[in-house]
Amino acid sequence: MSDLTLNGIPVVDTFAEAFDVAGTAIVVTNDTPKWAMIAATVMTGFATSVIGCGAEAGIDAELSPEETPDGRPGVRILLFGFEPNGLKDQLLKRVGQCILTCPGTACYAGVEGPTKIKLGGAIRYFGDGFAIAKRVTDAEGKARRYWRIPVMDGEFLCEDSVRAVDGAVGGGNLLFLGRTHAETLKVAEIAVEAAKSVPGAILPFPGGIVRSGSKVGGRTKGMMASTNDAYCPTLKGRAASALPPECGVVLEIVIDALTSKAVAESMRAGLHAATEAGAAHGLLAVTAGNYGGNLGRHHYHLRDLLSKASA
């Protein structure tokens, strides 16, 4: 199958194909880590694929009180969309419906970047004219503008605008070919933990793992994407199948990040963690998904990720 191996596990000499996306980050704080996480979890729900959900989102990191603007526990959320306008629309909807509504939350910009997205300045209209804008200097001495919107537990404080970055990438991926569902899921879980430990990278699918890998288009007219039949074990034996006979399960992890480097490092971490645990869990091989290299300009060759650190 492949001349490449890592920790004794075959690695297919192929590449993951990923795309330029619009990306932003926000920081959500609350009085307790529990409620910060509740807000973040709700906001990042139904955000697995930008095609069907409008955005891809995930929790990047839990923040200590020392790391947040208001000294409360927080969570950093990453949100990605096809383009800045779509990202803005999703950001407003999700902050408006999930963060504004959650008791005790406040919302801040989580990244610097060239594109301004009005956030608090748009949500303030919920305040029906009673919202107050305040300019406050942050820890670095930079003046930041916030909106204080009266709500029933006091105020929802939200930064006037957040920033979208240049260079965000969506669609880094790894596919794990295994023997049984339980064992392959364990390998994928281990890979997810390693991959999401890279700052600025998220894995938007359930638990970071997707079973319904897709190809572009389909036999049904109008389908943008359809099942990745080459990696479906029940379709083994057909000419297009890419699976060896002993493969019974394929699971994929998908990675979005604020930078291309973070995608590569996240894939590297996932690849190494999966192959280290792979022998004990029946991992047959690791590969990656691409569309022939013609759709996305970011190609992450697994060959380049075999070393522990980037060159």
Binding site: P69, G71, K134, V136, D138, Y146, R148, G154, E155
Partner: peptide
């Protein structure tokens, strides 16, 4: 009496 987030930001700003 209100325990508002704004006061935390203000306190941090004033401490400088």
């Amino acid at each position: 009496h209100h325990d508002l987030v704004y006061l935390r930001l203000l306190a941090r700003s004033l401490s400088r």
